[in-house]
Design a protein around this nucleic acid. Sequence first.
DNA 1: CTGATTGAG
DNA 2: GATTCTCAATCAG
Length: 624
Amino acid sequence: MTAPRNDRRIIIHFDYDCFYASVFENENPALKSLPLAVQQKNIIVTCNYEARRRGLSKLQLVSEAKRILPDVVIVLGEELGRFRNASKALYKFIENFTWSGKVERLGFDEVWLDVTDLVDYNQALLNFNDLSHSFFQLRKNDPTEGFPYDATSVAGHTFPHNPQQDSISRSSSAIPTFDPGSGNDLMVRLILGSHLAQYIRRSLEEQKGYTSTVGISTNKTLSKLVGNVNKPKGQTTLLPPYIITQEGPLPDLENPVESNVTLFLDSHDIGKVPGIGFKMSQRIRNHVLSRPAEHDEGLIYGGTKESVTVRDVRNFPGMGPELLEKLLGVPGAERGLGSKAWNLINGRDDTEVQQAKKVPSQISIEDSYIRLDNMPQVLKELRILTTSLVKRMHVDLLEDDDEPDSEGIKRWLAHPKTLRLSTRPRPPQNADGARSRSFNRISRSGPMPNFVFNLKENIDATVEKLVQVALIPMFRRLHPERGGWNLSLMNIGVTNMVEAASEDGKGSGRDISRMFKKQEEVLKEWKVEDKDVPPDPILKSMAEEDKKRFDAKRAEPSAGNEAPFDTLIGSEDMMIPTQNTVDESGMWEDDEEDEENRDMCHRCGAVMPAFAMAAHERFHTLEE
DNA sequence: CTGATTGAG
DNA sequence: GATTCTCAATCAG
């Protein structure tokens, strides 16, 4: 029915302490001794521990934070580039320690590392006659690189808590807590994992300037959760036994040995288990409490929060994968959620630590707004967002070409095939008291025009074209009404990455059968310096004359100060003849006599003259 | 494939 | 359940 435990891996989970604040502290060490908070829009997204000690917390209103702690140093953290760069550097640093390449990032500030192979190797190296003077080898076949350690005791904290050990954990003497020769394999492996974790953690602090909180266990869920026991700057190992064992031939009902996994998980609120989020925990809570769980009122005013713990759920009559499946299996939900949740509740998690990926599967940029309700503003914001997005694509999807004699040449690691525009309309407030529902995002997507991959073109020109030929039409599909909308958010993203063949021939996503599909074939070895641009759905859809204008512009020799695209074709109210255009008054321009000659593609929504549709259709046919 | 939902930090 | 600005997985159609 339910799979048995598998505790053969050793997984380390890293969580950098108050990451955003640490990035600023590393940029400017003088900040380290001050209470520091990082602001995005109107909220404090995180703050350092000095600020927390003095009463601040995450996700507080800026006004509230200033009231509580007028001295607080507040820095703006809306620009995420610095965090992304720091996160990548730390991730690369940690990646150096793996042999398997299993290093997975979660957000900017968490990393899982599967060190099973290093632990296996070093376990075999143990000399049982002198365990307290062991040496941890970081590289196979190199006995010199590594560190000495005491294999008779766990490094750092443990769960369950061991007061004796913890009280002197800051001193250098280690307390022998376990004899690895006695046959408890899991214990030995966790000890090795804890020492490796400590070594990496210290390296991270000494060489990179970042402190971290670490958990060591046998899967992702447990390692992540157990790390939280000692933070910041701590590490915690979840000790065996992980399964309930009974001594002797008969179960000793008087003295059952409890699994530390259950002991550890049971006190957690059900919603604290990674993978069981707000919706799932609400549904489980409702069932266990036999009534809708109180939320806002109970939480804020009464302080009578009804907490439903993992233990409450696990011990609830009839609880198991089947009941959970019924509770969680609403239409549209992931199937098999019941077993998944049941496994998580029991600390079973067989999901692998993902291999390091060369390219993200999507990149998106967004901003939120107090009021965004007219086209000129939308246009302005679209340009800003698109500029960031194109720059992000250059940073994240471009790599230096390693071919000889190709100095400074960049090549695309992957081409996103899809461009997406999402908005979040402000909830329509009904005067008649009915609750305004659906705070959700809506989106439209379409083919990514290939001109964005042309690096010879000015970024501003690329951005302007993208806005005009792709984003404005998408915006129109999202909001066909001329007005009346008010957006609280806009997001632009690229998805559907097609990875280019890697140069060393052993690239990650290399799959011959998939690579020879038409689209991939065309994109495969395409490099920036190539003259030919892959077939472009947008440009192809344009009338011939317009295409010539674009081509003429592209072929123009750059004479020092090249005028940007929009100044050549017309600035603010420029016309892209194949698209309906927008003027600064924010009205859709409807050219009456032109209207009947236009057509919209039923597949991608592109608007074009009727005579261009045939060629456009052919493009789509080729795509399939 | 698209568009929505859920979960994560 | 929402605030910020993301990213991944997964579903129905």
